Computed example of a mutant assay.
Amino acid sequence: MTYDVGIIGSGPAGLSAAIYAKRANLSAVVIEKEYEGTGQIAESGQVDNYLGLPGISGYDLGEQFREHAVKFGVSFLEQEVTEIKKEDSAVFTIIFEDGSSVETKTVIYAAGATPRRANIPGEQEYSGKGVSYCAICDGSFYRGKKVAVLGGGDTALDDAVYLADLAEQVYVIHRRKEFRGAATTVEKLRKKENVTFVLEHQVKEITGAEKVNGVVLENGTAIAVDGVFVAYGSVPQTNLVKELVILDAAGYVKAEETGETSLAGLYVAGDVRTKKLRQVVTAVSDGANAATAVVEYLK
């Protein structure tokens, strides 16, 4: 059987694409490498910015997305994709780790991006319990509290600006004296009374009890904080498509709102594509747009 569309990734973008594809009466298969996976959203302790569902846990929201897709009769394959081929034929061949494959007329690639980790003690233990990788997602939980932002690039600086309007105190901890991010953003932060730069230092440990209560620097200095934002940027999962489509300098797939890439029939949705905001709401939107574009392409 040749499917109308193969959707790689079962996060919000992939599941949204699957629902829109099924509503358009396309034969669609969602390919996921984790059993009944729902993407990174499952790791969020609480989601407060998805319209109509304030305070829902990320796990529950992901489960609702999946149940919706199942209800619409979406097919799932639990496989890890190792290669995507499109040669002389207009059909794509999606090859799996076990050597099997499926053929599809189009592909929606929704493999996402993963945040760069600090790889320090306490990070994994307190993930979702004070350790966050998304200031826009979780910043509102730290109104009037103290937070640390780790990093010196644009992600860290932009997160610090955002958090400074919410938190009582923001510590920007960076291992170098100079920042890699925009000088204008640094100057903006220097003017904020509740922002403290901790330069030429690294965090060696994140401490806590039930939740985060501080960080310890490599020189032994302890700083009491209620939250830690690891802001080293993200790594787009584009290895499978880097030889097929055009990427930007950061490794994201170049695509506009339709998800259309430089290769006919291959679309992207979610965190893997070039865009300003990477949130669950924009991932869901991307999936809908990509599936709608696929319908037009197949016509």
Rank of each mutant, 00 (worst) to 15 (best):
Q124Y: 02
G153N: 08
K146R: 15
I136M: 11
Y162G: 12
K129M: 10
Q124H: 12
K129E: 03
S132G: 09
D158P: 00
S132K: 07
A135T: 09
L150W: 05
K129P: 04
Y133L: 10
G130C: 05
Q124L: 12
V172A: 10
S127N: 10
G152N: 10
S132T: 12
L157M: 12
L157I: 13
A160P: 05
K146P: 13
I173L: 09
K145D: 11
L150Y: 08
Q124C: 02
A167M: 10
G128C: 11
V131H: 07
V131P: 07
C137R: 04
I136V: 15
V161N: 02
R143L: 05
A167H: 08
D165N: 15
L166D: 05
A164K: 06
A164T: 05
G128W: 00
Y171W: 01
L163D: 04
S140E: 05
V161F: 04
K129V: 06
G151I: 08
A167Q: 00
G152Y: 01
Y171D: 09
C134P: 13
D159Q: 11
A164E: 01
A156Y: 00
A156Q: 01
I136P: 06
Q169D: 15
K129G: 02
Y142S: 11
I173D: 02
Y162I: 13
V131E: 00
D138I: 11
Y133H: 15
V131N: 04
Y171F: 14
G144E: 10
A167L: 10
